[in-house]
Simulated assay, not measured.
Amino acid sequence: METVTTEIKKMVQPILDVHGFYLVDLEYVKEGPSWYLRLYIDKPGGIDIEECALVNQELSDKLDEQAPDLIPNAYFLEVSSPGAERPLKNEQDLKMALGQYIHVSLYQKQDKQKIFEGILLAYDSEHLHLQCKQKTKLREVVLERKNIAAMRLAIEF
């Protein structure tokens, strides 16, 4: 399965580069009886449905040209936006999230909590700095990256 995703990444990258898009995530999964090849793409300012359809068609054409088939079984190809609460998985994602409101889940509690939400102020290889609201006060929280289970953009209410 990893070989499929690795090869698809190589195949889709030139398509994305031509249009100024980037790959957020890619998964090849079986759900029930069906297989899905899902690509989540984005660009600065956000991606729209027509752009997702364009990448879908171009990648589909490239996949159809492969002999032998890269993916031997039937599958559904889905290309979409990562959404408003997209996951933050790598350094590029964090860079784009600077100054934005994010949600961070921890493996172990820090200050008696495992969930933090706030403005991403800064990050480095070992820490994340968030500006969080605690009742009516703003405070800076420093989280160790090795304790972070997941991060995503969040909508502030």
Rank of each mutant, 00 (worst) to 15 (best):
M1P: 08
M1E: 11
T3C: 00
T6I: 05
E7I: 00
I8K: 01
V12W: 01
V12I: 11
Q13R: 13
I15P: 02
I15S: 06
D17Y: 07
D17K: 15
D17F: 05
V18A: 15
V18F: 11
G20H: 09
Y22S: 10
Y22M: 06
V24K: 12
D25Y: 05
E27K: 13
Y28K: 07
Y28P: 04
V29N: 10
E31H: 11
G32Y: 11
W35P: 00
Y36K: 12
L37D: 02
R38G: 11
I41F: 08
D42R: 03
G45T: 04
G46Q: 12
I47H: 02
I47P: 03
D48P: 00
I49P: 01
C52S: 06
V55Y: 08
N56C: 13
L59I: 07
K62R: 14
L63V: 00
L63H: 03
D64C: 08
D64V: 04
D64K: 12
P68I: 10
D69E: 11
D69K: 14
I71D: 03
P72L: 09
N73L: 06
Y75M: 06
E78R: 07
P82S: 07
P82M: 07
P82I: 07
E85L: 05
R86M: 04
R86P: 06
E91K: 15
D93E: 09
D93Y: 04
D93K: 06
L94G: 02
M96A: 15
M96E: 13
M96H: 13
A97I: 08
A97Q: 08
G99D: 06
G99W: 03
G99Q: 06
Q100V: 01
H103F: 10
S105Y: 08
L106P: 06
Q108T: 09
Q110C: 01
D111Y: 12
D111P: 01
D111M: 10
Q113E: 14
I115M: 13
G118R: 04
I119M: 09
I119N: 08
L121P: 00
L121F: 00
A122Q: 11
D124I: 02
S125P: 00
S125Q: 15
H127S: 12
H127K: 15
H129I: 14
Q131P: 00
Q131I: 03
C132D: 05
T136G: 03
L138M: 10
R139D: 03
E140H: 13
L143W: 01
N147L: 08
N147H: 09
I148T: 06
A149M: 09
A150P: 00
A150S: 10
M151N: 10
R152F: 00
A154R: 05
I155L: 12
F157D: 09
